[in-house]
Each structure stands twice: as C-alpha cells, then as structure tokens.
C-alpha cells in the first residue's frame, strides 16, 4: 500500500532522531507493539475520526500505553497530538520499518505457496535470495491454495513466479499469441 506523504515525513524524522540517539531498536520495538494496537480497524477509524477531539485521543493513547514507551516514541505521540495528526499513526510503524530495513540492508517480501511452507524451506529460500540480491532477505509466508503448487516470491515490485498457476498462465498466454503457421512449418 502507498503511504500518505506526511506519514513518511514523520517516520523519517523519528528514524533520524532514533539513529542519532542510538535508540533504533528500542523505538522499533515500541512501534511494533503500537502496530498491533492500531492495526485494529476500529482503532484506526477512531484515530482518523475528526469528530473526536485531538486532546481526547491523546489522553486515551497515553492511558493505554502508559509509561511503556521510550522518550522518543512518546515524543512522537505528543507531536502528532499537538498537530492533530493521529490519523497517520497506523501508517507509521510500517514506514519506520521500511526505513530501518533499508538502513540495515534488509529486504522484506512475501512468499506465497500452495501448501504451508515449513521453516526450513523458507530459510533456504531466504538464504538463496539473500545471495542473489546481496541484501538480507526476510520472507513472510502466506498460504495461497489457488497457486496449485510451487512458490511465488514477491520482493518489492519484483515477482519470482515458480508456481504452477503462473506457469499455466504463461502457457495460456503463449497459446493465445502462438503463430500457428510458423509452428506447423517448423515441425515439418
């Protein structure tokens, strides 16, 4: 999903501040716990609801999270509150994670497979793709029965399709565009 432009600005500011204070891991952990909370559609909708006053959102967030956050993350919440930008909160963990991944030379992607993939196979794929890309690849497994067989890996906007469905799809495309006359003459 594309991010609102403002979300990437806040995420970058937070990231730079965390890097300078050597608190990247701490902030990342904060945001992960935050992500679990704001990923709830109801919470996200409430945060984006303009009828709820910014001060109320702020108070509730503080009460829910208490003193569990690091200074930087608490500061981020305060800044968002002051500017009535709480609607951006659901996007921030993801944006921050992207920046962190790039900083640490990590690449996240998904691996889709027809049958649930065991950890060993996934790690094998990760190792192979890490060698190929020169970055540390992390794959999030997904179970997609429609693939029929094989796996399909998506890294950024590149897709490595080794699934049976993908191959069938390619056969269909070839058949639709096949030059019948040429095939017959080359056979003869």
């Amino acid at each position: 999903m594309a991010l609102p432009a403002a979300a990437s600005r806040y995420a970058r500011a937070l990231f730079e501040a965390a890097r300078e204070q050597d608190a990247l891991d701490r902030v990342a952990a904060d945001l992960r716990s935050l992500e679990a909370m704001v990923a709830e559609p109801q919470v996200a909708a409430w945060l984006a609801d303009p009828r709820v006053e910014s001060r109320r959102k702020q108070a509730l967030l503080e009460r829910a999270l208490g003193g569990r956050l690091s200074t930087l993350t608490a500061g981020l919440l305060a800044v968002l509150g002051r500017r009535s930008r709480q609607a951006l909160l659901p996007f921030l963990p993801r944006a921050f994670q992207d920046l962190l991944d790039r900083h640490q030379g990590r690449l996240r992607g998904t691996v889709e497979s027809a049958l649930p993939l065991d950890d060993e196979a996934r790690r094998g794929l990760e190792a192979a793709l890490s060698r190929a890309t020169g970055l540390e690849v992390r794959l999030e497994p997904r179970h997609v029965p429609e693939l029929l067989g094989g796996v399909r890996v998506t890294l950024g906007s590149t897709r490595y399709d080794g699934s049976v469905r993908g191959r069938l799809e390619r056969v269909r495309r070839r058949l639709q565009t096949a030059d019948l006359g040429a095939a017959a003459s080359s056979d003869a």
């Binding site: 998506t154 906007s157 590149t158 897709r159 490595y160 080794g162 191959r167 070839r174 058949l175």
Partner: peptide
C-alpha cells in the same frame, strides 16, 4: 504447440515486475 509447452513446463521460474 501444446507438446512444446508441456516439455518446457518445468522450466525455470519467471521474473516479472509487478
């Protein structure tokens, strides 16, 4: 045509930009 396709069916994975 089908024969050729089936013979090449196990061929390597396709890389595409999505």
């Amino acid at each position: 045509i089908l024969k050729k396709e089936i013979e090449g069916f196990q061929a390597a994975t396709a890389t595409e930009s999505v």
